[in-house]
């Protein structure tokens, strides 16, 4: 399946946001659900091997956009001869604009082979909260092969560059350096850093870390998704990102 979906949010000039473009192709179906909120509503199971999906997000100067999803994304095996399933997300956030990306988790079902590529470009004075949760395998199931490849740039420089590989193709991924016994991991990248609480570590496998540049990362690893949500939901819901935040 091949899909290209795109959402463009612009300031309406009166402190509000209007969506000047909302184009969806199945299974990346976008629905406006609030004044500044769009939900991915999904359309069928997947991604499956062979799928090639691309989501483009553009938030113009002074606009505010929050993207959520109604259900987890379940990466499934599909036909063995097809290439890995691939989801590319490209987002740009202008100065004085704000984007909150708070989807439900990606679940890597046994036998899947999936790659998510994320490229976010935040202009100086823009603000971003970018959350990704990953669950390695459904309940009592081995993890499929999954890789996430994330680059977040701010004011023309790379701020955060991270790849995570799990599943049978990733040596040592379930060992004590990478995820250990953890089968769920959640991360939140915030620009500016002040969108997250101050740096902290613990309890359990949780830390909020100031990045070398003007941002912060919160990471939680746990046996299942519940403790990850307990650690990250409160800091994501803590305060809506205000446009024009300063790093």
């Amino acid at each position: 399946m091949r899909a290209r979906s795109r959402v463009v949010a612009e300031s309406d000039g009166h402190g509000g946001t209007r969506l000047t473009e909302l184009r969806s192709e199945s299974p990346l179906l976008l629905r406006r659900t609030g004044a500044r909120t769009v939900h991915l509503v999904g359309g069928g199971a997947g991604p499956l091997r062979g799928d090639d999906l691309r989501l483009e997000i553009e938030v113009g100067p002074g606009a505010t956009l929050e993207i959520r999803s109604v259900a987890a994304q379940l990466a499934l095996p599909g036909r063995a001869h097809l290439p890995p399933s691939r989801l590319e997300i490209h987002a740009t956030v202008a100065g004085g604009a704000s984007l909150r990306w708070l989807p439900e988790p990606l679940i890597a079902a046994a036998g899947c082979d999936h790659l998510t590529v994320t490229r976010v470009e935040v202009a100086e004075g823009g603000s971003l909260l970018w959350r990704d949760d990953l669950v390695c395998g459904r309940h009592d199931e081995d993890s499929g092969t999954v890789r996430t490849d994330t680059t977040i740039r701010y004011a023309g420089s790379t701020l955060y560059r991270h790849e995570l590989s799990a599943g049978p193709a990733a040596p040592g991924w379930s060992g004590p350096a990478v995820l250990g016994e953890g089968r769920a991991i959640g991360t939140v990248v915030a620009v500016p850093a002040s969108l997250l609480p101050p740096a902290t570590s613990g309890p359990a496998d949780f830390a909020i870390m100031p990045l070398a540049g003007p941002g912060a990362l919160a990471t939680a690893v746990a046996a299942d998704l519940r403790p990850v949500r307990a650690a990250l939901d409160p800091i994501c819901d803590r305060q809506p990102a205000t446009a024009g935040g300063r790093p």
Binding site: A177, L179, S201, D205, A207, M209, V221
Partner: peptide, 22 residues
């Protein structure tokens, strides 16, 4: 290019180092 160099992360090393530093 630098952005294209490998970026494989190890979340428990990051979290462990932060705990350890305290």
């Amino acid at each position: 290019p630098v952005d294209d160099l490998p970026a494989a992360g190890a979340p428990l090393l990051d979290i462990g180092a932060e705990l350890h530093a305290t």
